[in-house]
């Protein structure tokens, strides 16, 4: 296959960037999208030019590093896959393909296609600890979890923190990511002791990072490589509203930011 890539090139943070056209000939339809960028980079390097900066790690769809906006769609035209799992057979010979970084206020572009997604990590951090015994593995039957809850919690836990939901959201909201994290622990017995404070602290951090507010448009779930469902946003709002009610009853000050207080495992991303 021969294709033409129009790639966002930007020399550094805050610097102006623009779309640059690169031709890539003789590629196989079985190559992944990232392998095509590898091929392009080898040729650019051999020609003494600056290679295209992009992120990747596992290349098997589980780490969440590799987000690219391809033809205007986060993670490209194929549903339910990450960019590393998108193959060139999804395109036609001779295609011109637009490749851009995630765009959102809280995700500054570092170089070319690489953005800083640590705002998502700070939301996780704000969630803080959960009170569970660590050390030797607990007896598996000591905590009972209803089957449906276990499944829903597990579905939510598959969120890999890639940030495609933010990239696709017309409001630049991370509501789907936040909802996945809140749902994941909120449905499990282990998540109950800190359920209220976690919901309040995480949504406060989400807003403080500069993400937009959700207006239930649903673009996020349509591009999510892990098919995180829109109901996690409703579940998150339920937890926040419930927490506010409890909070009113207790007459306390606002919950303290639990950043840095990771005693046991936090609501980890992957």
């Amino acid at each position: 296959m021969n294709i033409t890539l129009r790639i966002w090139r930007q020399p550094g943070p805050g610097r102006p960037g623009h779309m640059v056209t690169h031709r890539v000939d003789d590629i196989s339809p079985d190559m992944s999208f990232l392998e095509v960028l590898d091929v392009l980079n080898q040729r650019l390097t051999a020609a003494g030019e600056d290679p295209v900066a992009f992120d990747s790690d596992c290349r098997e769809g589980i780490c969440g590093m590799c987000g690219l906006v391809i033809n205007g769609i986060a993670h490209g035209p194929q549903a339910s896959v990450t960019t590393c799992q998108l193959h060139m057979r999804s395109f036609a010979d001779g295609d011109v393909i637009d490749v851009e970084p995630w765009r959102a206020g809280p995700f500054p572009v570092l170089k070319d296609l690489v953005v800083d997604r640590s705002a998502l990590d700070r939301i996780i951090q704000a969630g803080g600890y959960i009170s569970i015994p660590t050390g030797s593995a607990p007896e598996a039957h000591s905590i009972l979890v209803p089957k449906d809850d276990a499944e829903d919690a597990f579905d939510a836990a598959t969120c890999i923190g890639c940030g495609a939901c933010v990239a696709a959201c017309p409001n630049g909201s991370a509501a789907l990511f936040l909802g996945a994290k809140i749902t994941h622990l909120g449905l499990l017995p282990q998540g109950q002791p800190e359920r209220d404070s976690r919901a309040l602290a995480m949504i406060a951090r989400h807003d403080a990072e500069g993400f937009g507010g959700c207006s239930q448009i649903g673009e996020c779930t349509a591009v999510c490589p892990k098919d995180i469902q829109l109901e996690v946003i409703s579940r998150c709002h339920r937890d926040v509203v419930t927490a506010l009610f409890h909070h009113g009853e207790q007459q306390e000050g606002p919950p303290e930011d639990q950043t840095g207080g990771n005693l046991a495992s936090g609501p980890a991303g992957d």
């Binding site: 906006v69 206020g105 409001n171 500069g210």
Partner: peptide, 19 residues
């Protein structure tokens, strides 16, 4: 908030006009 998070361009913030 939406303007701040998307540079004022909302869903049209990508160069690509295909989606």
């Amino acid at each position: 908030r939406s303007r701040r998070a998307t540079g004022g361009r909302g869903g049209g913030r990508y160069q690509s006009t295909r989606a």
